[in-house]
Design a binder for these strands. Structure first.
Ligand SMILES: [Mn+2]
Ligand SMILES: [Mn+2]
Ligand SMILES: [Mn+2]
Ligand SMILES: [Mn+2]
Lengths: 229, 229
DNA sequence: CTTTTCAATTAGATTAGTCTAAATCAGCGT
DNA sequence: ACGCTGATTTAGACTAATCTAATTGAAAAG
């Protein structure tokens, strides 16, 4: 059996592999999980012994297929829980992350199945992130980029919202910016500010660090994909 | 903060205090939690340092008010979870215990509040055990005794069913014996067998060890209490 | 008032996960 | 090619929870 800690390390490595280019450096893992570098070294050593990561000393690690499966399992738990807490227990969109971060390690497979069934097997969580299937096949991320990347004047669909910082989420939620919403970029100010107009007609100004949390795509692409499926 | 282990020890001590006469012996705790005696000794020492139990060396321990509050908190979590899993996720009556045994230590106070609200603040769990209030006031147990204690011929109300062994629960559930059901004791055989008749007319024979799991009371007493409240 | 018995504690070791401080290695800049 | 620098690993220590083996103590039996 794997400890909650090991699961968190694998999940972190999974995410870091996606973000950057593998292998993932020990110090990056240490930063992400807020532990001292030797702690990360020692943990990746155990993960390597368990064949959950491939490790090259002084270089870093990459997940093995088994390691990736574990990561996907934990992510599935996490996102199903976030969806469940939001839909069934009335949690606020911004407060589910912390709870899911813990429970993801403690629910049984039975619980996972029943929650998935109760939610009618959802494939995205409340933040717009894809939920791994019960067979834990590799996810292909929905292609989307930061709000400012499309330039001004484009009509865009909010694909997902990064769930790292609850404050950001509360702000965005209050402003009416959620996955599924469409908006137009009015202005990308060089000062570090993006202004968008919602369908309600309202105009919202977002400081860069918050705008970065909003991942958008073109509505046409989204429509194409639906017709494919 | 208290670890999951410490919470389990406090919950066990709470239950053992109810069952027998305090103080609770170290070896009893060790047996209950399935650890070696020195393990229990060392843990009750830490609990005493934290002032969660009163300890007299070579005698045993009793919960302090703070320790009792922690125990009640964990029991509240456990029983709310059991109720929730049964009512909202369609768990079988007999399979909720194990899941609740783990999750009880990991849900937040927010989760507790929301689950309680979703269930409309229940005061008994699916096995008929009382759920501590959110203020964690001491519970007064619903008075009830083992099936055989009333003698033959009495009409009785099933108050609760001990949730220790899932096999027993499955058997009893299959036989239609659940909290709230009324039945008549047909025969208490000296061989170690109790036969009861349900309202459906069906007769069920129960070996002693299973009959002991069924806690009953007189229907009149139950009615009295309802009118009091 | 001894002796015996066995529960309880002490002693000492183990594992997981963490830390700080010290040593070392890889890769860049000259 | 050489050495500097910073990332990485090693060394050594700590805490929580557990174990086995040895010791001690309390309380019953004689
Ligand atoms: Mn986590
Ligand atoms: Mn799972
Ligand atoms: Mn437990
Ligand atoms: Mn609580």
């Amino acid at each position: 059996m794997l400890s909650a800690k090991m699961e968190d390390y694998l999940k972190a490595i999974y995410r870091l592999e996606r973000d950057g280019t593998p292998p993932v450096a020990t110090s990056t893992i240490a930063d992400t999980l807020d532990v001292a570098p030797p702690t990360a070294t020692s943990m990746v050593e155990t993960l390597a012994d368990r064949e959950l990561v491939e490790r090259e000393k002084y270089k870093g690690v990459t997940l093995t297929p088994e390691g990736e499966t574990v990561a996907l399992e934990v992510i599935r738990h996490h996102r199903l829980l976030e969806t469940f807490l939001t839909e069934e227990l009335g949690y606020d969109w911004s407060e589910v992350h912390e709870e899911a971060e813990i429970l993801e390690h403690h629910i049984s497979e039975e619980f996972e199945r029943r929650v998935a069934a109760a939610l009618d097997n959802p494939d995205v969580d409340p933040h717009g992130d894809p939920i791994p299937s019960d067979t834990l096949d590799p996810i292909d991320d929905i292609p989307a980029s930061a709000l400012a990347d499309y330039g001004e004047g484009r009509r865009l669909l909010v694909a997902r919202v990064r769930d790292r910082d609850p404050e950001e989420l509360t702000y965005l939620d209050g402003a009416g910016i959620r996955p599924g919403v469409e908006l137009v970029v009015e202005e990308v100010a060089p000062i570090g500010m993006v202004t968008v107009r919602l369908d309600s007609g309202e105009t919202v100004a977002l400081p860069d660090h918050i705008a970065d949390a909003v991942q958008v795509r073109s509505p046409e692409d989204a429509a194409d994909e639906v017709s494919e499926a």
